[in-house]
Simulated assay, not measured.
Amino acid sequence: MTALWRSVFGLLVVTGLLLGATPPLGKVATLAGAPPLLWSFVISFGAGTLLLAGLLARGGRIGLGAAKLRYFFLAAIISYAIPNLLMFSAVPHLGAGYTGIMFTLSPVLTLLLSILLGVRKPNGLGMAGIAVGFVGALLVAITRGEASEPASLFWVAIGLLIPVSLAAGNIYRTIDWPKDAGPIELAAGSHLAAALVLLVGLLVTGDIAVLPVLGTIPLVVAAQVASASAMFIFFFRLQSVGGPVYLSQIGYVAAAVGLFAGVVFLGERYSLLTWIGALIIAAGVAMTTRAQKAEA
């Protein structure tokens, strides 16, 4: 465990694998009748509670200073509430595998935002990687989800907003990371903040009334909470040691897991153009990664 905690590549793989389980589990839950708002709450409340328990058991605590509270709630909205709502709304229409492909755009968009916000200086290879990634995204968007059930352009657009939100979260968490804050503290605090925001949403929309549906899928709930809790421990550790752009590459691993689970376990089928687009996106990610290594 100590070796994994110190390995940036190991953290990347484990975090990506755990993240990749989210779209398939989310599809099963939404098809069972759990609204996106409720399933997003399950993730944040479950993960936040378990992470807080682990933090307290180790003698830690969550700081409630102004800087940390700002971080908790802004990270909660940008990084968790919005992406999860988008994901779980789109996955029944686009498929778990197709939605997972959207994760692969996160590194490209994170680099683009880093350049636009002055976090990084642009270089030729990085800009070329961004362009290649967008070409792949365009091809994937044209196929509109599963081959047998093409989704409307509206749901494709919702799917494309997922990596935009993830990229914004990657940048925000880096530039506003509170001093003397550990990864587990930040993970617990931001998820509990997200749970509070989502609970308000459940009460306002009336979706809280369908809470009993969770009792019909207890194993799915348990699997989602366990995977999310573990994932965010590694997620924040990777953020602190790898930076926002390296962190964003978990989308590449997550997409592979989502595609595998969607095709093998959920019976999803995608056109050849979707697979070609995914490979082109992967090429764009490889280019942006190499560009950042060259900068380093």
Rank of each mutant, 00 (worst) to 15 (best):
F41M: 10
L18Q: 03
L17A: 03
A47E: 07
F41L: 12
R58G: 15
L17Q: 00
R58V: 03
T15S: 10
K27F: 11
L38I: 10
W39G: 01
G16L: 01
G48N: 08
F41P: 04
L18N: 02
L12D: 04
P35T: 13
P24D: 04
L25S: 07
T15E: 06
P24Q: 08
F9E: 12
L18E: 02
L38K: 10
L38N: 06
W5N: 06
P23C: 08
G46D: 09
G26E: 05
G46W: 11
T15C: 05
L52G: 08
V14D: 00
F45M: 15
G16K: 01
F41K: 02
F45P: 05
F45L: 15
I43P: 00
V14S: 00
L18M: 06
L17D: 00
R6W: 07
G59T: 12
L37M: 15
W5P: 00
L4V: 12
G48W: 04
V13T: 05
P23K: 03
V14W: 00
T49S: 15
G20L: 03
P23A: 11
G54L: 11
R58H: 06
L19C: 03
V28Q: 03
A53K: 12
G10E: 08
V13G: 01
A57S: 14
G54K: 08
L19W: 07
G20W: 01
W39D: 02
L55F: 13
G26A: 10
F9D: 13
G20S: 04
A21G: 09
G46S: 09
A34D: 04
G26Y: 11
A47W: 02
A3L: 14
A29C: 09
A47G: 12
G10N: 09
L11A: 02
A21L: 15
L12V: 08
G20M: 08
L19T: 02
F9N: 11
P23S: 11
S7F: 08
L12T: 10
S40E: 05
L31S: 13
L17P: 00
T49E: 11
L31C: 07
F41G: 08
G59L: 10
W5V: 07
L12Q: 03
G59A: 12
F45H: 04
W5F: 13
A53W: 13
L56G: 07
P23W: 06
G20K: 04
F9W: 14
A53M: 15
S40P: 01
S40W: 08
G33Q: 10
G46A: 09
P35R: 09
G26N: 05
L31P: 02
A32G: 10
G60D: 09
L18R: 00
W5I: 09
L17W: 01
V28F: 09
G20A: 02
L18C: 05
T15K: 00
A53H: 10
L52V: 11
I43N: 06
L55W: 10
G46N: 11
L11D: 01
L52W: 13
V13Q: 01
K27Y: 02
L11K: 01
G54F: 12
L25N: 05
A47S: 15
P24L: 05
P35E: 09
G33W: 14
L17N: 00
L50Q: 06
G16A: 05
V42E: 02
A21F: 14
T22D: 07
